[in-house]
Design a protein around this nucleic acid. Structure first.
Lengths: 196, 196
DNA sequence: GGGCAGGGTTCGTCAAGGCGAACGGAACGA
DNA sequence: TCGTTCCGTTCGCCTTGACGAACCCTGCCC
């Protein structure tokens, strides 16, 4: 890394931590797939010396180098910069922090908030018939996936919503105006918001 | 890019396409947030000449440079390497390619397959009471999110499954043995498989 | 017009990323 | 014991990414 200039510390880790992450990720993914440095370097078309230095935490690879490694390891690019951390979490119906909108017939619970640099929020929706809930558009590139568990709802882009019943699924751009309107009592749905 | 050595073409785009993507993404995100090159370079702690060259498609930035830009633009790292593409898709209950397991009381439908370099598959599950379905562990780092729409099911790690009802949610590591066993007829669930 | 502040690009310099080759070690068989 | 063949690391060299400064252009105000 060039230390001629001070780099601002990111919200999630400094540059030094970042290359540490990458070093660990590359080694982890390589060993998981059971391939040697020599072989991986050959597949990725990079020098094995480069790979050795990267896995040792030295260096600040170019995106092309990292991309080539991701392709050779057959893992998404983002897996190389973010670490994993799984646990078990149970949320009973009715539990958890509930966000009530202005309309009282709508309640959303965040099932899993979006971890740093990840791309998906999962929401549980319980709604009662009544006013149409028109969401303001989210960030560009956002996609919403909705699945109805029980009840009925009118869901989708504001100009062309779709009536859905239990088991029905729809996905649509989240960065354009869209609606969610329950048509039956105790309508239950899952919404996955995807930030591409 | 060094062209001393031939790089293998990735499954989704060559290195040249990659830097074109990055160039377009940086410019798009910068203009979306309404900030000048000078200001963005200052925030990210990089030279504005560097930024200029990156946006013009020249160069092969280091991950630290790209990281600093992501932080300064306040967008996830992955947004800078993948382009967006949203559409509307509706899948009615009972429609779609259905994967039946060996046990006839279990049917899974892929609602949204995992796009290249993305990290989540969404499945709809309709299950009938009967045999416990024990899934073989998936890739390390995988996490499963399950929400019950209707019915009841015993879900979670094999050594400690949890009984869930409508609206209940659980998440657990997908790289360890885990089960899904319906306890009521026509149990409906959503499973989001997350590949960190 | 002339100064000036803000954009973005181009230029020359320097450190460092990436390279091949050489090197040390461990496992294996003749 | 020696040679072979893998492994991963270390060593110089060369290319190039990133830098600051100079530069051009446009819009604005006096």
């Amino acid at each position: 890394m060039s230390d001629r200039t001070a780099r601002p510390e990111g919200a999630n880790g400094s540059g030094a931590e970042l290359i540490g992450q990458i070093a660990a990720s590359i080694r982890r993914e390589r060993e998981r797939s059971g391939v040697s440095m020599t072989e991986l370097a050959r597949r990725a078309g990079i020098a094995k010396s480069t790979l050795s230095q990267l896995e040792s935490g030295a260096g600040n690879p170019s995106v092309e180098t990292l991309w080539a490694l991701g392709v050779a390891l057959n893992v998404p690019f983002s897996r190389l910069v973010d670490p994993p951390r799984p646990t078990v979490k149970v949320l009973r119906a009715g539990e958890g922090p509930v966000t009530h909108s202005e309309q009282a017939n709508y309640a959303a619970t965040v099932l899993s908030s979006c971890p740093p640099n990840a791309r998906r929020d999962i929401y549980r929706i319980e709604a009662q018939p009544g006013e149409t809930r028109a969401s303001d558009p989210h960030m560009p590139g956002t996609v919403e996936h909705v699945m109805i568990g029980s009840g009925r709802a009118l869901v989708g882009p504001t100009e062309a919503p779709v009536e859905l019943g239990p088991g029905d699924y729809i996905s649509y751009p989240g960065d354009a105006p869209h609606v969610f309107r329950a048509l039956a009592a105790d309508t239950l749905a899952v919404i996955v918001m995807e930030h591409i």
